[in-house]
């Protein structure tokens, strides 16, 4: 039976909530493998492990629970070991490194921030800012919408204006939030967002990050800002 590893935490204070379960169907009970002053948060690994949404959520939830009382180094999804003994061996071999990493991240959490535009608001904004675009819109309207080519050309110019607005707003969000954080990393490349950043913040600074994000939303109604956290420091463990 192989062992699935969720994360690594400091051993002496490691505690799991009673009855905590993790990945698999049925969900496998979560336990600790303690060694060298460290504790790996593990469970048995199901025979067929695939990155299903259910299991990804379970991975995140186990880390969330395990990290409630003390900091935890989150593993990437899908880390599997032959046995608990192998997990112990890895903990022993790299104990110093993991301990210093835990020390370094103690009391810190990750917030992931993604931004898109509310498209109605951003279209209104770029038209309001650009007389040339307004004139083009008017000309097309008078021509009953314009020809296919005219509409295409006009739409392309609008899209161009929206893109520059995206760059501008990405800078705005980053420059506003970064001073509140101890670290900032780009999020994974995924479709859709014009901004995807993870910030490492002291737990005591979380409130400030959230209120600042709120202020940005109010001041710039075109911004659809999604703030997720507090999270285990996924983006800050691999250095």
């Amino acid at each position: 039976m192989s062992t699935y590893v969720y994360g690594i935490t400091a051993g002496e204070r490691a505690q799991l909530p009673e009855g905590l379960t993790g990945i698999g169907e049925p969900p496998r009970p979560v336990r600790l493998v303690t060694e060298a002053g460290l504790a790996a948060v593990v469970s048995d690994c199901p025979e067929e492990l695939r990155p299903k949404r259910r299991d990804l959520l379970a991975h995140q939830q186990v880390l969330s629970e395990a990290g409630r009382k003390s900091s935890v180094l989150p593993m990437r999804f899908g880390s599997v070991c032959e046995s608990d003994e192998d997990v112990s061996r890895v903990l022993t071999e790299h104990a110093e490194h993991y301990r210093s990493k835990l020390e370094q991240l103690s009391g810190r959490v990750e917030y992931n921030v993604k931004a898109v535009h509310h498209e109605d608001a951003v279209l209104h904004l770029v038209l309001a800012e650009n007389a040339e675009l307004r004139a083009l819109a008017e000309a097309n309207r008078k021509a009953g919408g314009g020809t296919y080519e005219e509409r295409l050309r006009f739409g392309e110019q609008v899209a161009e204006a929206v893109r520059s607005r995206e760059a501008w707003d990405a800078d705005l969000v980053r420059d506003t939030l970064e001073p509140l954080a101890e670290g900032c990393r780009p999020g994974p490349e995924s479709g859709g967002w014009f901004l995807n950043l993870s910030f490492l913040v002291a737990e005591s600074a979380s409130e400030r990050l959230l209120t600042t994000a709120d202020r940005l939303r109010r001041a710039h109604p075109q911004l659809d800002l999604r703030v997720n956290g507090p999270l285990p420091p996924y983006s800050f463990v691999d250095t």
């Binding site: 590893v5 994360g7 690594i8 492990l49 695939r50 990155p51 949404r53 990804l56 959520l57 991975h59 995140q60 180094l73 989150p74 593993m75 990437r76 999804f77 899908g78 880390s79 599997v80 070991c81 192998d86 061996r89 890895v90 790299h94 990750e110 992931n112 993604k114 999020g187 994974p188 995924s190 993870s198 999604r226 997720n228 999270l231 996924y234 983006s235 463990v237 691999d238």
Partner: peptide, 23 residues
């Protein structure tokens, strides 16, 4: 839905240890 925004971090970030196999 906010939690789904986080799944990409679970998949693409986090500690990778060579001795562990990844699915």
């Amino acid at each position: 839905s906010g939690l789904y925004d986080v799944l990409e971090l679970v998949l693409d970030r986090g500690l990778v240890i060579d001795a562990f196999v990844r699915v």
